[in-house]
Design a protein around this nucleic acid. Structure first.
Lengths: 232, 232
DNA sequence: AGGTAACTTACCCATTGGTAAATTACCCTA
DNA sequence: TAGGGTAATTTACCAATGGGTAAGTTACCT
């Protein structure tokens, strides 16, 4: 919706680009953009659309229009709408999972505490495609579908990482209620989502700047609860 | 979707209920359930549907089916789908706004700090209709529509309340960056949303129990940032 | 018996996911 | 240099869904 190149524009550039663009070793009787390139374009566009509007509200035609192509091409390349979604989901999920996992695996010794390191890794992984986060956390996926299951799988994997940290925090604070741990996971997830959403609305902010901002927010939030807080 | 009473069931109960149910001073040549009662039923069902699935994914027919009636009746009573949404939005928005406003107006002196008082008020206001929160925070509203504007209006009003507290916190922590304040509002909103979502998935939890749980979580989160945290 | 509120059946139309069948443009060889 | 082969892409269509409406039907009350 933002930078929709006119069809004529795309079309005109097509031939020249295919010569200069990605040399995918293509050598066959072909017209237009090589399939691999087109697939990359489509995936990027679809990821942004799905992330911005959610699965339900995203139309295949809209994704196609962003790339300067028509619906049937997407179906031929990726299959159904859900298949297209899945094609977006996997790379995003893997990227995020890997980023968070390595951030948590780092020695917990020095400067930034784990949650802040995780946030920083998150921002770094999402830079350039921030809406991707909402591909994972899309509430409008058809319940019971493959897509919903796979997305849930990735979310759970990420949550499991958070669970470790959460459990530690709670134990230190004197709570061993498993429900508390679960709620804390929800809260943390919601916090990340909110921060990413803010970030999307402030495109000029670098990942590093975001991480620093989060550090400031955390230290400010520290004063909310004076010393201890467990009534009843 | 959960407790969908069979049509015959509802139909059969209709006549008997209208005699015992709400005596709305009805005195006219009528069949079925008096309009005022039906409207209340519809509003309750619609609020839950909208909250659970979002505006876009909610179908008028589904709301009608929940109540045991057909589409045209809803349209006759409430107008378009958007009108129905607006009819749900207003009471919910007013209720939440009022609850939060009074919670923040209370003397800030004694036991629970403001954020926790606000959360408690929130849970109390949402009890019995927890999905209502997501009617206000529905991302799938048609952009630019009346509905989107009104919902944004309520959200902003609530955010403005939060902004006061946020600004105070940040000033105390040494930051006067207005972007920090904005991000903190997002974070707080996201936190509330996440907690409400958790609550919806744990129907047995009372509002009071939720408030206590939040207090525990807050005190646990306190240890995330050791003493101060503002690098570079 | 007729008036009226409550409610439904049957329909229209725009949107959207999806497909089949062309058509275009390129490379390669004879 | 004409034409065959093939990848890329489109036009034209189908079927299902869902918002919305018109007109009729039911059941109650007086």
């Amino acid at each position: 919706m933002t930078t929709l190149p006119s069809k004529a524009d795309t079309r005109a550039g097509t031939r020249a680009d295919s010569r200069t663009d990605t040399r995918t070793g293509t050598r066959a009787g072909t017209k237009g953009v090589p399939r691999a390139d087109r697939e990359r374009q489509v995936l990027a566009a679809a990821t942004e659309e799905f992330g911005r509007h959610g699965f339900e509200a995203t139309t295949v035609a809209a994704v196609a229009a962003r790339v300067g192509v028509t619906k049937p091409l997407l179906h031929q390349y990726f299959g159904s709408k859900q298949d297209l979604y899945l094609a977006c989901l996997d790379p995003v999920g893997d990227r995020l999972l890997h980023a968070i996992r390595t951030a948590m695996a780092e020695p917990d010794t020095d400067a930034p505490p784990t949650p802040l390191r995780v946030l920083h890794a998150l921002f770094a992984a999402l830079d350039g495609q921030r809406e991707a986060w909402f591909v994972l956390y899309d509430p409008s996926l058809p319940p019971g579908s493959d897509a919903a299951h796979r997305a849930a799988h990735y979310r759970d994997a990420i949550d499991d990482l958070a669970a470790d940290g959460a459990a530690g925090l709670l134990r230190a604070a004197g709570s061993d209620d498993p429900l508390d741990a679960d709620a804390l996971r929800y809260a943390w997830r919601g916090l990340c989502t909110a921060l990413v959403r803010w970030w999307i609305n402030h495109p000029d902010q670098s990942p590093d700047a975001m991480a620093r901002r989060c550090a400031r927010l955390f230290s400010a939030a520290r004063s909310v609860v004076p010393a201890d807080g467990e009534p009843a």
